[in-house]
Design a protein around this nucleic acid. Sequence first.
DNA 1: TCATAAGCGAGACGGTACGTCGTGTCTTACG
DNA 2: CGTAAGACACGACGTACCGTCTCGCTTATGA
Lengths: 184, 184, 184, 184
Amino acid sequence: MARTERESELLAITLQLLQKHGYEGLTVDEVAAIAHASKATVYRRWPTKAELVLAAFIEGVSEDAEPPETGSLREDLIVIGDLVCAQTRQHAGTMRAVLGEVSRNAALSEAMQRQLVDQRRRMMRKVFKQAIDRGEVRAGDVDSELWDLLPGYLIFRAVVQNRPATRRTVRALVDDVILPSLIR
Amino acid sequence: MARTERESELLAITLQLLQKHGYEGLTVDEVAAIAHASKATVYRRWPTKAELVLAAFIEGVSEDAEPPETGSLREDLIVIGDLVCAQTRQHAGTMRAVLGEVSRNAALSEAMQRQLVDQRRRMMRKVFKQAIDRGEVRAGDVDSELWDLLPGYLIFRAVVQNRPATRRTVRALVDDVILPSLIR
Amino acid sequence: MARTERESELLAITLQLLQKHGYEGLTVDEVAAIAHASKATVYRRWPTKAELVLAAFIEGVSEDAEPPETGSLREDLIVIGDLVCAQTRQHAGTMRAVLGEVSRNAALSEAMQRQLVDQRRRMMRKVFKQAIDRGEVRAGDVDSELWDLLPGYLIFRAVVQNRPATRRTVRALVDDVILPSLIR
Amino acid sequence: MARTERESELLAITLQLLQKHGYEGLTVDEVAAIAHASKATVYRRWPTKAELVLAAFIEGVSEDAEPPETGSLREDLIVIGDLVCAQTRQHAGTMRAVLGEVSRNAALSEAMQRQLVDQRRRMMRKVFKQAIDRGEVRAGDVDSELWDLLPGYLIFRAVVQNRPATRRTVRALVDDVILPSLIR
DNA sequence: TCATAAGCGAGACGGTACGTCGTGTCTTACG
DNA sequence: CGTAAGACACGACGTACCGTCTCGCTTATGA
């Protein structure tokens, strides 16, 4: 997936226009015009507008952050929460724009899940494993069904509610909900 | 917001085609043709395709369900959770389609919030109030910031993750997370 | 064909809008709106836009002028020529607007001919008859095929050429062309 | 004004449909459909229906005929008259359709004048000049104001009267009116 | 005096053309 | 050969107009 400079430029322009106009408002003509490229140059790489947009979205959003290692589960969760907050605050519009296409295109949907969900899942797993290793919580206490409650609710707030969570929200969520549910 | 029969018919057709073709695939011409209506008849009421779709979505989704009164907070929450599950399972595609427009149109955004969020908020408030009146939980235990954690996470699962929650998920969420956070 | 006041008002408005916007640019809605009338009120009297326009045209254009009796054929012809000049100068736009419809509607075509052509034909006939009676020209010299050469050319200039004839044109036509062709 | 093949094809189809349905009955969609062309392809060249129709009319009508050189003014005039008769007989409906637009569009009006009038004017001038050179008429006898009396009256008959002139009419006009006015 | 009707203003409606614009394909000419 | 430029077929969008229709309101006559 090594991008040429040209490809990265096209994706960057696409992402920018996507944030500006939304999925419907984005036009391939405008992407090409701004890049001083031919439409054929765009379509040669991404055969539909939807794939172009998804590629731009993935390129722009996925920053492979390392899982935190603060030595405390609470601190780790808060770091993750704040990170998700910042990310979703920045990319909420883009995510909304892309979501509409996800329903109808299995490839897009899968790519999106892999890029966004799996990355976060790995991070959460590692943090919990560290906490178990440290003896902070018992292994059985972590319900695998709800591992993404923290990022999930934060994303819901930003993307669906259009009311992004604050640092206060993150702390309330971790202290009053997540932690009590583990060390019950 | 009293709908005439004609309006309801148009919205019903729109919702049906929306679920069938998605937002992009839906055409106002087809809506009009199926309803044996003129395009002008549609555009007179909803001046753009986006507003038509949002109206159809709201009409289709907002079934003013009464808050449950099972006599137990746990049962009430599970009823609500199952209801949200069923609703989102049915309308996830439509919600994704509509979300893209929400970014760009404050009126749509507000309408969506009022219709969907406020309705749920009222339901949750009433259920908690009943529980407080019964002495199940103390008033201070209910953090108003997180009142929508239950529906929010369920919606996240359906809309963003495309992996709708099950009845098991709802029960785990209520028993292992929500309730412990209240009676801590 | 006794017009009520309401009918005359509608036709006057129609004629005015016809001159302003042309046939295509004229809308029945606008006629009705200006007259504070319902469209049904218009359509009850003239079942199509074309018939409304033709009626307005006839009403507005046909002024039944009396044939001149100056005692001299030359003077009579010049009076007629000047009259036609004035009429066509005023109604050229309207005539152009109406002509397009004439091709396609036999009734309109016939009505237009009767109103405009026959009226002039009668006038010319009478003038020539008077000249014959006075002995100015011999009966055989008047070629019935070309009786409308004078008004015809003047109308051509105004309607087709968009270059209305002047009083000088009329005199040249009468003195240098029409009269020489008669008293040859 | 070099037309591509595509453009000529579109204009030919337009002219054909124009004669078939008239101006109002002609639709750009049908032109495009018959030509297997996109509407955008039509509108790229002629930005409105009116301009398309005028272009088709000019293309169809302006056959750059050479001025006749029969060696006799009378014969030259009759050739021209018969030519105008044939042309107007064929294109009367189209001319009527186009005239309505002429009022409202100076560019169209000018184009029409240049294409149709100037062409004929050149022809008449040349024919008269030849006659003067031959000594048939004296230079002063040709009144420049009325040079278009012959074609003008013939066009009037076809377009306004809807009663096209015959070969007999042409001969009467030339022999009894035009020539007498010159050699008076 | 009142009701039954007839005409009216207002404007929604079905149908359909207009002119615009975006997608994805394709051609041409340049480097 | 890849590219920039942009024409092209297709088809949806949103607007506007025609001619029909329904709805109340007014007025005008006849019982």
